[in-house]
Computed example of a mutant assay.
Amino acid sequence: MNALELPVIRDPRVEHADIAAWLQSLGGPVWLILEGEDTRRCRVVTTLLHGNEPSGTLALHRWLMSGPRPRTRLAVLLANVHGALSHPLFTHRHTVDGRDLNRCFRAPFEGPSGALARAIAHDLAALVPELVVDLHNTSGNGPAFAVATRRHPVIEALAGRFCERLVVTDLRLGSLMELPHEMPALADCPVFTLECGGALQPEAREVAEGLFRLLSDCLDPAALSSIPYLEVLVHPLRVELRPGASVVYAREPRPGVDLTLWARIDEHNRGVTQPDARLGWLGERGVACLTARDGLGRERVDELLEARDGRLHARRPLRLFMATTNSEIARSDCLFYAVSAVSEGSLR
């Protein structure tokens, strides 16, 4: 293993039962490295790329308190420690003067967030991992799911242990899971995101804790058997506001607003959204206030959504995910992702 750019704590021991005190003691972005039984192999878990997504950190803290000894070397990154510690705890996606770290993993790596992303990418290559799992919470409440940029047996075997859905995307946003396409050193490494569920859902921490236990106990993730049903959905579209468009969340339409989304639209993160379901209300611009471009840059919003008597509806049965009720995230990131309810493939 080559030298790492970020600080390293080897074989960490938790001395603070209070999560905030523990994070303060870390001082900032840091690698926690547990040597394990087989030091020739390394697995990586990254978490806290977003400071308001705590499940991975809470699970890690609890797991470390048990004094684990993993089967292989395990390197765990706590990335946006400063964002997580911004008051109130675990409510800020990033610091006030920062950028969304999970949009910075590609050139030109501008500003402090870009520099941190570049250091993380360098360290991942230096660790020579056989697997990278990036832990997140969903922006709204909903079930756990996995996201990857390609299909891979290790990804599918692990994802099938913790969720029922794997989304394979060709969108390129500058996220950590895209690094195998950017860095030859990681080209063959299975990298995927595990969205554990909403930040306030107890089940989300259980998913993250399960991942740490599995990576600690299992020597070969590719050999996992008895994988439950895993639905694989490919090429989701990212539904965003057009520049200058406005959005609010309410139970009735708001005048003078381009889009009023249903106050509990995150309920659509489960199951299939049928065309008769009302997603919200549209202003004078109609669906023109929205955009959904595919991986080739083609506009596809009219294939997904339509206006009916001033209301927003799905044009066909869709699976929605990452639907948020946070207007700040809706404006700065996206409203939700959508894909046809007909899956492209599945595993049993």
Rank of each mutant, 00 (worst) to 15 (best):
G160E: 08
L85G: 04
G174F: 05
L116I: 06
L78H: 03
Q201R: 14
E156Q: 13
D170E: 15
L173H: 07
N80C: 13
R69D: 11
N141E: 15
L200R: 14
P129V: 02
F109C: 02
R106A: 13
V81W: 02
L158P: 02
A107R: 13
A185M: 03
E164L: 11
V96T: 15
C163L: 06
P190H: 06
A146W: 02
H82L: 13
Q201A: 15
A75D: 05
M183K: 02
L173A: 14
L179E: 03
T138E: 09
D97P: 04
E195L: 05
H181S: 15
A187R: 13
F105H: 11
L74A: 09
C104A: 14
V167A: 08
T72S: 14
R151A: 08
R172F: 14
A185F: 00
T72G: 00
T138A: 14
P70I: 08
R161C: 15
C104G: 01
V168N: 00
M177Q: 06
R150N: 05
A115F: 05
R69E: 14
V128D: 09
N137H: 08
N102Q: 07
H181Q: 15
G114D: 04
R150I: 11
V191H: 01
R172T: 14
F90D: 02
A115N: 11
L176Y: 01
F192E: 01
S113V: 02
G174I: 04
D188V: 01
C189H: 00
A199T: 08
G142Q: 03
A204F: 03
F105S: 01
R151F: 08
C189E: 00
L194I: 12
R172D: 14
G160S: 12
H92W: 05
E156I: 11
T193H: 08
H152A: 11
C196D: 07
R118P: 01
L74D: 04
E178C: 06
E195R: 06
L85T: 08
E182C: 04
H122G: 00
H136Q: 12
R69V: 15
E203Q: 15
L77M: 10
Q201V: 08
A204M: 03
E178T: 09
P153T: 14
